[in-house]
Amino acid sequence: MNDTAIRHTLTVNVVYLARLREAFGSAGEPLQLATATATVNDVLTALASRGGAFATELAAGRAVRVAVNHTLVSREARVQQGDEVALLPPVTGG
């Protein structure tokens, strides 16, 4: 069996911006999910399950938006192996 043909895990590169970077004490990290397919929601759930600042900042109702490969997407959007998944607090430019 060719093990590159059937993937059982998925790794995305998570990026934390502005207030979230400070709250998590990190600018980002690779995140491995134990599933072959995943959505943005799955990424957020995996991070929130760590507890602490992750659970607080990513709790339901918190205004966090997500960009996959530099484009804003919905929570239902699929993520692929190697995607850059950025977590954005509400923007305050201009």
């Binding site: 502005a18 207030r19 205004a63 607090p89 509400p90 923007v91 305050t92 430019g93 201009g94």
Partner: peptide, 23 residues
Amino acid sequence: YLKTEAPFWKKEQTPEGARWVDA
């Protein structure tokens, strides 16, 4: 649109310390 869609964030230094600006 820039104010609600473009990824910029302001952090202010005040006499009471630094704070991220709320949307």
